[in-house]
């Protein structure tokens, strides 16, 4: 395995509704990540993540290409998935020896549509989607399954929200942050029992970019590169009834393959758009009490679609790069109720 590291990370402000178009949002983010990396264009490989359907715009990624600087022509590809998987593809390209540097970016504009409804179109088109089960209701099914199994309460979930919002106060890119009072949160009505507003992610628009570099290029680019020591992803059955929703076996498997448990973890950035999912993921990755989870506030405080997973990797990498952590785990998810999961292990040395 070649030594590949994250050498820079940048993200957009994650607004509830961005009036700028994709290129206007992405261009400054890409420019910032490139500038911080100190690596001059052209990159050996560029890869992005986004979803046409999300934006109601076919070929959204084609429009966004203008932000990446594709002249002279560049080796470039795209996944119609969260940017975390675009980062994976770029990492693979470098591992194959066909690139030394890579630019990865992602964006998602959820505000034009009704996100929970749009996400219903991810489901089996013959037997599930026609029922239009929105994403929040599905998450609620999972939350119920987990609470029944563990005996956890709504208060336990609210505590996760309170902690995340407090941590998000130091994150200028968070959509939601502040000192929430747990009683006030619990007094709110359920949106889809047992989930209340604070248990669910805010809808927002955002973008992010990361630069990867191999070996010497990484050492030259960055004082403290965040080395990718392991990265893996796995998918589970699509049908909710075919899985035990109270656990995340694919996260556990991906974590094992990526070697998450091979050392002490200082920080974990887990892509948990719903409060109960943070608990499920913690367990799947075997993260003990001593691990600081989601110091950025996590997806509960900013959840730009197709980007939040990449941002988890970027935030975890930032803790390595700023010296506050020696070993970090980042996680990204895709699909209903944590169907598909990616785990990335980062180290400072």
């Amino acid at each position: 395995m070649r030594d590949v590291a994250i050498v820079s990370f940048a993200q957009a402000p994650n607004r509830r509704r961005e009036l700028r178009n994709e290129v206007e949002i992405l261009m400054p983010v890409v420019q910032e990540a490139v500038a911080r990396s100190g690596i001059e264009r052209p990159f050996d490989f560029t890869c992005s993540g986004s979803s046409d359907f999300l934006q109601g715009q076919p070929f959204a990624f084609v429009i966004a290409l203008d932000a990446a600087g594709a002249w002279p022509p560049i080796p470039e590809s795209h996944v119609e998935m969260d940017g975390a998987w675009a980062l994976y593809e770029a990492w693979v390209k470098i591992q194959s020896g066909q690139a030394e540097t890579a630019l990865v970016y992602a964006f998602g504009k959820s505000s034009p549509g009704d996100l929970p409804e749009v996400l219903a179109t991810q489901l089996d088109p013959y037997v599930l989607a026609p029922l239009w089960p929105d994403a929040v209701s599905l998450a609620a099914l999972q939350a119920r399954a987990w609470m029944e199994k563990t005996g956890a309460t709504a208060r336990d979930l609210a505590a996760i929200a309170v902690r995340s919002r407090r941590d998000a106060k130091s994150n200028p890119n968070a959509t939601v942050s502040g000192d929430a009072e747990i009683e006030k949160l619990l007094a709110a009505p359920a949106i889809a029992d047992p989930l209340r507003a604070h248990d669910c992610p805010p809808v927002c628009d955002g973008a992010a970019a990361i630069v990867l570099a191999a070996g010497e290029r990484a050492r030259k680019a960055c004082a403290r590169p965040a080395w990718i020591r392991g990265i893996d992803h796995r998918i589970e059955p699509h049908s909710l009834g075919a899985r035990d929703l109270s656990v995340s076996v694919s996260t556990q498997l991906a974590g094992e393959k990526a070697g998450a448990g091979r050392g002490a973890v200082d920080v974990a950035e887990l892509h948990a758009p719903f409060t109960h999912q943070e608990a499920i993921l913690r367990e799947a990755l075997g993260l003990g009490e001593g691990v600081r989870v989601n110091p950025s506030g996590g997806a509960l405080c900013a959840n730009p679609m197709m980007t939040a997973g990449l941002i988890r990797i970027g935030e975890a990498a930032s803790r390595i790069m700023d010296g506050s952590a020696r070993r970090a785990v980042a996680h990204a998810t895709s699909g209903p109720c944590l169907q598909q999961n990616l785990v990335c292990v980062l180290e400072g040395a």
């Binding site: 070929f59 179109t121 991810q122 088109p125 895709s334 699909g335």
Partner: peptide
Amino acid sequence: APDMFEGVMMPELYLAD
């Protein structure tokens, strides 16, 4: 190509099985 051709967003999720 674009998911609107079938009306299924991110069909890899449905096709995993």
